Simulated scan of single mutants.
Amino acid sequence: MARPVTLFTGQWADLPIDHMVKLTSQFGYDGIELACWGDHFEVDKAMSDDSYCTQKRALLEANGLQCLAISAHLVGQAVCDVIDERHKQILPDYVWGDGDPAGVNARAIEELKQTARAAQRFGVDVVNGFTGSSIWHLLYSFPPVSEKMVEDGFKLFAERFNPILDVFGECGVKFALEVHPTEIAFDIYTAQRALEALGNREEFGFNFDPSHLIWQGIDPVEFIRAFPDRIYHVHIKDAIQTLNGKSGILSSHLNFGDPRRGWDFRSPGRGGVNFEEIIRALNVANYQGPLSIEWEDSGMNREFGAAEACSFTKRMDFSPSDRAFDAAFDE
């Protein structure tokens, strides 16, 4: 059976949810992955208004959509990050508060706990998100970075996330980190180290997104093979390297969409990701969850792109065989 194809609303939070669900249905999607910002899924309202989740479900069902995950990337970023003025623009006012860094970290931790409780109320068992990182700025080891500094970063991550994951466990919800630059885990080795820092507890796994791996030179299929039992959710998102002898992989402080960048995101099927091999690897891993399109392409109209991406994803998905191709010779 084909996996449900859903649309992540993180890049559409400028649209009111009533309009967003209608568009998602018109594009041909089976479901929607609601971002916990804008008015798409509001954690505070889900916890304070007993009718909120019921009304949200009714809205989705009226448009023929299911929801299998919600996403808390923005508040998750503030859990482990060194807080600065950038975070004010991505956080709810009640999490930002007075902007005191320690207070922002603490409020973000409590908000992520509440997100697990809200997910339970809403009837989903996966929350996708970020963790932030206190050591991302140490990536290039100069001035020289000691192993203790890196280890302290993973210890801080475990110290802040274990209490969050305790609540996730109580609620029967899993947290799926989108492995991504600026997070505690941004590639295969750091993902393994993050799991180890948490004692490999089952509440913590990954939202697999190949677009953040391919431009780093990492084969996304190898990530699936490394963590077959920890792929809790999948984002379908593409990217491409555009290195031309002038551009660099660190992107030169040029924003997305600038043609001078060394890499950029592309609409699914229009970049460098080999989705054929990803589907085969997901089949081997027995992943049966949604394929959720996170649509980002600065060079394309988003409504055109989202509709095309839905058709592309449904066309390229397939179930594994239930028999060997030469099994007829055994009959």
Rank of each mutant, 00 (worst) to 15 (best):
L15N: 09
S134N: 09
T131P: 08
F27V: 01
V21K: 08
Y52A: 05
G31F: 01
G103F: 07
E85S: 11
A119S: 01
Q55N: 15
S134C: 13
L15A: 11
A116G: 10
D14Y: 15
C67M: 07
R117N: 05
G103S: 15
E85N: 10
F122I: 07
N63I: 01
F130D: 03
D93F: 07
G103H: 13
M20A: 15
R86Y: 14
D18M: 10
Q114S: 07
D100R: 13
A13Q: 13
W96F: 06
Y140K: 13
G31Y: 02
G99H: 11
G129D: 00
V82T: 14
V126W: 00
V126M: 02
L74Q: 11
Q11K: 13
A72K: 01
E85T: 11
E61V: 08
L65S: 00
W37R: 13
A106N: 11
I32L: 10
D125L: 07
D49A: 07
F27S: 04
H40K: 03
D100Y: 12
N128D: 10
L91R: 00
A72Q: 04
F41D: 02
G129K: 04
M20N: 11
G38L: 12
L15T: 14
W37N: 15
G10P: 11
G99Y: 11
L74W: 05
I83E: 04
C36H: 04
W136N: 12
I17P: 08
V82F: 06
T24I: 01
S48D: 12
T54I: 10
L59E: 05
W37C: 10
E110W: 09
A72L: 06
I109D: 07
I135D: 09
F122E: 05
G99A: 05
L59F: 12
F27W: 09
W136T: 14
E85Y: 12
W136K: 10
R117S: 03
